[in-house]
Amino acid sequence: MRGVRLQLSQVRRSFGKLDVLADISLSVRAGEFVSILGPSGAGKSTIFKLLTGGLQADGGDIRFDGKPLADQTRPFAFMPQRDALMPWRRIVDNTTLGLEVQGMAREAARKRVAPLFAEFGLDGFEQHYPAQLSGGMRQRAALLRTVVQNRAMLLLDEPFGALDALTRSGMQRWLEGMWEHHSWTALLITHDVREAVFLSDRIYVLTERPARVLREIIVPLPRPRRDLASPQASAIEADILETLLNPQLDQRT
């Protein structure tokens, strides 16, 4: 069994009198793709803020590779909901931004990112500005900016939520292929049940606020995943939807 990289144990967080997270426990193993699903406002993004250092937990334990996360340099590369590309920077300069912020010289950063443009479907667009790219290409550029930092784990916060349905479907297939090829370790926040089933090895379903893990669902579908209309995929999707719509009927944790 692959070793656990990220482990959250009974993590709690409140904002004044508002309890947001209540005893959240979950894990992500090396090379695994895990998703978090839950109602709007359930605290999914709060979990990412705890991981990236934007917030501190009120209680519980967060570990990476068995060591307290607070004692380490943050091992995550974070991709937000929007591509957050700077409109005045060319694509090549947007994709190197994370490396430059870390202190890498501009030319060294360009050398590192250059071989990846073709793989990310951006070959020939290095000198374009974000406004000249399609939504899907902008998201690929944002993901390239994220992964080129060579961090131990990807945090993906609804990266395709702003795309139209057809583009989103294509990006999901592309991401699955890239994840398999590079053996990334990834944690995804999404509201899209089908997206979670398509991409994930395991899915954590959260309750409404204050959020707890209601269920952990293993997705045993073979990869690469091409047929989400299969009876098995449809059954998993229907099961998750039933849990989200009627959580009081589900006693599994």
Rank of each mutant, 00 (worst) to 15 (best):
Q7T: 01
I24T: 00
A165E: 12
F33L: 12
P220K: 04
I62Y: 00
L206M: 15
A142I: 09
A42V: 08
Q7G: 04
E158Q: 02
P247S: 13
I91C: 06
A118D: 02
D201Y: 06
K67G: 04
G124V: 13
N246C: 13
V20F: 06
F125W: 13
L241G: 15
L116T: 03
E180R: 15
F78C: 13
H128V: 08
V113N: 02
H181P: 03
A105W: 09
T146H: 02
A108F: 01
R110L: 13
V4H: 08
E119P: 02
Q149D: 09
E216V: 08
A235S: 10
G16Y: 01
P231G: 11
L116P: 00
L21Q: 12
R112Q: 15
H128F: 11
W184P: 10
W184L: 12
P80D: 05
V193I: 08
L37A: 04
L214Q: 15
G3Y: 05
E242T: 14
A238N: 04
A114Y: 00
R194G: 02
E176T: 02
I218V: 01
F48I: 10
R168G: 12
D123M: 03
G43P: 08
V197S: 06
L221A: 10
V205W: 00
A70Y: 00
D93I: 01
A108E: 15
P220N: 09
P222Q: 11
P220E: 10
L51Q: 01
I47P: 07
R145L: 08
M137S: 05
H128A: 13
L156K: 04
F198P: 03
L26Y: 08
F125V: 07
G103Y: 00
A152W: 08
I47C: 11
V4W: 14
F48Y: 04
S45N: 12
A70L: 05
L245N: 15
P247V: 00
L156D: 03
L21K: 09
E126A: 09
G161C: 04
L116F: 05
F160M: 15
E107D: 11
M171W: 14
A229C: 10
S200A: 08
I189V: 15
V148K: 00
L199N: 07
K49Q: 11
H128Y: 04
L166H: 11
L206K: 03
F33E: 15
V20W: 07
H182Q: 15
D61T: 10
L228E: 11
R63Q: 13
P247K: 06
Q232R: 15
R89A: 10
E32H: 00
G170E: 07
L199S: 09
Q251S: 06
E195T: 01
P231M: 11
L69Y: 05
S230A: 09
S230W: 06
L50M: 05
L85V: 05
A238Q: 11
F160I: 07
Q232C: 04
Q172R: 08
R112L: 15
T95P: 01
D93P: 05
M171L: 14
E176L: 13
W88D: 14
I203A: 07
A141E: 10
I236M: 14
Q248E: 13
V101H: 08
F33S: 10
E158H: 03
R2Y: 09
